[in-house]
Design a protein around this nucleic acid. Structure first.
Lengths: 146, 146
DNA sequence: ATAAAGTCTATCTGATTAATAGGGTAGTGG
DNA sequence: CCACTACCCTATTAATCAGATAGACTTTAT
C-alpha cells in the first residue's frame, strides 16, 4: 500500500496540472478540494518543491505551481520520493539495496527472481503514467480497467 | 515492501517443498536454516497450517510438512495471507475495498486506473509463481533477471 | 512415564504513519 | 513601508504495526 502522503501528493499534482494555466494555487484550496489536512499538505508540497517538480510564490496572489511539464512527471518518481523503493524486497532495488542474510546465492534465488519481475513491470507501468496521461484518461473518460 | 513475516513464510515453504520427500521437518531446523527467530517462525507456520497449506505432527519425529502440491501454492496467496491486499490502493482491491473520500468519480479516476494496471500485472506474475516454478528456477540455475 | 515436539497466551519495544499546534519568516500589493 | 497573505519550520502526539520474546500447556511416540 502506498502512504497517504504519496496519495495526497498525486492528487495535488493532478490538480496543479489540470489548472496550471490559472497561475499559483493556494495550499488552502488544494487542501479543501482534496480533503487533505492543510498542515500535512504543506510538508508534502515542500517536498515536491525541493524535488524540482513544483515552485511556489509567497504573498498575495501566491501559491504553488508546476514547473515540470505534465508529461515529465511520472508516478514512479513521485512514489519513490515519498515511499522509497518500489520493489517488494530490498535485494531487488538499486538505491535502497540490502542483501538478504538468508540468501545463499542471490543469482539463482527463485524468490528474488519473481519479485524482480514484479518490480520491473511495476516500474514500467508507473513510468508511463505521467500527469499528462492521467489527465488525458480523465478527460476522455477512458477506463482502462474495464 | 513485503513484511519479514511473508518473506520468512516463503523461505520456509520453499524449503518444505524442496525436502518434502523426507517427512516432517522441525521448526528449529527451518529456523536455523533460514536465520528466522524460532518463536516468530512458530506463529508463521501455524498461520500456514490454518490456511490449509501445511500440516503438522506433534511429538518425536514430528514437524511440519506440505499438504498442498507445490504447483498449487502460489505467491499471491502467500503474500495475501500475511500482508493483506496486493494492490497499492484500497480502492482497487476486492476483499479489502475502501473508497477514497476525495474521489469524485471512481470510474474515471486516472490515478486509480494506473494503480489497477499495476495490481493486475502483479497478481498475474505472483499467481504464476508457485513453489514448483520457484524450485525449478533454482534447480536449473535459470536467472530470469539477466 | 518421559522426552520431544507443536500450540497457546501474553507481552514488549521500537519504528513509522498520520496528524496537529503554533509560531516564525518573507514576499507582495497598495 | 506596512499590513496582509501565505509559505516555512519545529515540535509533539496518538495510534498502529512489525518484529520479536517468554513461558506455560498439550499432544504424541517410544
Amino acid at each position: 500500500m502506498i502512504s497517504k502522503k504519496a496519495k495526497y501528493a498525486i492528487h495535488a499534482l493532478v490538480k496543479l496540472a489540470r489548472e496550471r494555466e490559472q497561475g499559483p494555487i493556494l495550499i488552502s484550496e488544494i487542501s479543501q478540494d482534496g480533503n487533505i489536512p492543510k498542515k500535512f499538505l504543506e510538508a508534502i508540497l515542500l517536498d515536491l518543491k525541493r524535488a524540482g517538480i513544483l515552485n511556489s510564490k509567497k504573498g498575495k496572489g501566491g501559491g504553488y505551481y508546476l514547473i515540470k511539464k505534465p508529461e515529465d512527471v511520472n508516478m514512479a518518481e513521485v512514489l519513490r520520493l515519498f515511499d522509497g523503493a518500489l520493489a517488494l524486497l530490498p535485494c531487488v532495488t538499486h538505491k535502497y539495496y540490502e542483501r538478504c542474510e538468508e540468501c545463499v546465492d542471490e543469482q539463482t534465488c527463485g524468490i528474488r527472481q519473481v519479485i524482480q519481475l514484479v518490480r520491473d513491470e511495476t516500474v514500467r507501468i508507473l513510468k508511463n503514467a505521467t500527469l499528462a496521461t492521467i489527465l488525458a484518461m480523465e478527460n476522455k473518460g477512458i477506463d482502462l480497467t474495464r
